[in-house]
């Protein structure tokens, strides 16, 4: 009698909870198996289409070694007309910067022309305060970088959102610095 109440009070709850945990984990592992490739494919496709949007003329983007570039630069790509073309049409850098939302809360892609000027920028992620810092992703702010070189002459921050603007413009500056490093490497 006593034995059965111990079983009922302690063993059963633990067994049931553990079994449920196991079944749930198993089900998740199976789902993960099926969705993981799709998620990876979709991510690649998104990155490709974002790059294509920035440099429409190019159709091949070769990933470059990002070591030695500013630490905020996560990825670097060379844009070419085709995979085996020698001529590089421009570079694309994925840069993450620290805003209010923590490091990486502003993540952008910067396309740099071969003359060292910004061709276009695109926001990949913006975790800044809605209606305030989030305005750095609006065309009014983003489009001003087009044609700028690394002096960022004529740059205007979004008023009332200095820190988010600083994160964004800093990311653009990092991309231009990364371009310089790559270009020097190529010249030598």
């Amino acid at each position: 009698m006593k034995n059965s109440s111990v079983k009922k009070d302690f063993i059963m709850p633990i067994v049931v909870l553990s079994v449920i945990c196991l079944i749930v984990s198993g089900a998740l592992a199976v789902t993960n198996r099926f969705t993981a490739p799709t998620i990876a494919d979709a991510a690649r496709l998104r990155a490709d289409s974002a790059m294509h949007e920035l440099i429409p003329d190019a159709s091949a983007f070769t990933e470059l070694d990002a070591t030695g570039l500013p630490t905020n630069v996560i990825e670097a790509y060379a844009a070419k007309e085709s995979d085996d073309a020698k001529h590089v049409d421009g570079y694309i850098f994925t840069v993450s910067a620290t805003g209010y939302g923590g490091s990486g809360s502003v993540k952008i892609m910067v396309a740099v022309n071969t003359d060292g000027r910004v061709k276009a920028t695109k926001t990949l992620a913006n975790g800044e305060t809605k209606g305030m810092g989030s305005r750095v992703s609006e065309p009014d702010y983003e489009s001003q970088f087009v044609g700028m070189d690394d002096t960022l002459t004529g740059y205007n921050a979004v008023s009332g959102a200095t820190i988010s603007s600083k994160a964004y413009s800093g990311a653009v500056a990092d991309a231009l610095a990364a371009y310089k490093i790559l270009n020097q490497g190529a010249a030598q």
Binding site: P13, I14, I20
Partner: peptide, 23 residues
């Protein structure tokens, strides 16, 4: 252990939905 069991079940189902949406 009713509440922990519910939470685990809900969390599992939410994660499945999360993975499907991400994909």
């Amino acid at each position: 252990v009713r509440i922990p069991c519910y939470i685990v079940l809900v969390a599992g189902i939410v994660t499945v939905v999360q993975m499907l949406l991400e994909a």
